[in-house]
Design a binder for these strands. Structure first.
Lengths: 227, 227
DNA sequence: TTGAACCCCAATGCATGCAACATTCTGCCC
DNA sequence: GGGCAGAATGTTGCATGCATTGGGGTTCAA
């Protein structure tokens, strides 16, 4: 890290604000439902209101916050209904990515990356390290849509993944079917490796419906109206 | 119009900039590929750089323009590859909306609105008024996803519709299967009225694949690398 | 105690200022 | 004549100023 400073890493204030604010939203450092004034955030980030404002606008576009005139930036809570919406879109999009990948096949590098994600999930589950499992799972899903090459679909899925991030973490410790997810993932990769688009599509669709339903149900039954 | 001025129509500069810029992009008043400096746009719109900048950031999020540091706002051209991406996403999402609608049924008002759109398209086709046809078609598709109630899916579809708007208009006069589209739309509404989700899904998916493929092929064969 | 109206003031929306940076042009040297 | 270096120019990125506005607190009446 110290020697690879070929890049001046010139990062704009807006980019920094974007990065930090997103992080704070995802980690609940800015809790869902909380409101934050521009000056407050600007002071927090050590910059003026302008870049904070621009970053907030971008985050609003990504569905993480809401800008209320004169009331500041509100971190959007995610309701059960929101989760249904999000998983409906993901369920429609991700299987198409799986299908595409199965059709065109994996490069060696991609195959290895997927294998690493799979093994990371399996290892994490054995060690009962659910945070690690969640990270690998997110990486896997992100890699899937990204590899399929539809940039618009990728951005949409990433944005939706961000939106459900908190809900996923929250339910993580109550989920008793992570091993099913792992098996699903492996079956998906097998289908892709076999070059069977229909199977990959169906398999991943089944997975998305199953896992999404599970999380949504958990949120619902625990009476968490929003996260 | 003159008597319904109960609303003071308080509109922020950002909203106005957003509206006007979008309009100019969709109508090619700002042609695809063209670059525009902040000051230029600000002068054009009669406001300062700030609201223009914020509107541009929002439009970038919607995939209509690209903000190049120090080079201004670039109106994004849409390549054939872009069209494939867009239609892939629309093909994944819209049929789900159709399915949802068939499952829950239409309200009377919705049914009437759809019927109006259908008739507008049929009338337009008979009168060979293709612009009118395109407008009704867009309205129909928008209404479809909107009525299904998934706000995220709706926003995504609207944004993608904006992105292909120019390409659709450009190919409009070469398309020889508008009557097929009309029939498709009517069959979809029939399926929804019958309350047959599978049929509605399949029907609309077929339509999207057909129409999307047609437009993309037209763009491609006419050697239009991008629009 | 509840509701409504009013007023105050903080936060925003927008304008503008300023310095940095990238691009481009110019001039010099080879 | 061509190429490179350095300066000039112009635009942005960000900071700040200022008038506006709407939220919320307070007061008064029912």
């Amino acid at each position: 890290m110290s020697l690879m400073s070929t890049e001046p890493a010139r990062v704009s204030q807006v980019q920094r604000a974007l990065h930090e604010l997103r992080e704070m939203v995802l980690t609940c450092a800015l809790p869902p439902g909380s409101m934050h004034l521009e000056v407050e955030l600007a002071k927090m980030l050590g910059m003026s209101r302008t870049p904070v404002r621009e970053a907030a606008i971008i985050l609003e576009g990504r569905g993480l916050v809401e800008l209320r005139p004169r009331r500041g930036m509100r971190v959007l809570p995610v309701s059960v209904e929101d989760m249904r919406e999000i998983y409906e879109v993901l369920t429609a999009l991700e299987p198409v990515a799986a299908e595409t990948l199965a059709r065109r096949g994996l490069t060696e590098a991609e195959d290895e990356s997927f294998e690493e994600d799979l093994q990371a999930m399996e290892r994490a589950l054995q060690a009962d390290d659910r945070e690690a499992w969640a990270m690998a799972d997110e990486a896997f899903h992100a890699r899937l849509v990204e590899a399929a090459g539809n940039r618009r679909a990728t951005e949409i899925c990433m944005s939706l993944a961000d939106q459900v991030h908190r809900a996923r973490l929250m339910t993580l410790h109550f989920r008793d079917t992570l091993h099913v997810s792992n098996a699903d993932h492996r079956m998906l990769i097998e289908a892709i490796r076999e070059g069977d688009p229909e199977k990959a599509y169906a398999q991943h669709r089944r997975h998305r419906i199953g896992a999404g339903g599970k999380i949504t149900a958990l949120i619902e039954e625990r009476g968490l109206r929003s996260v």
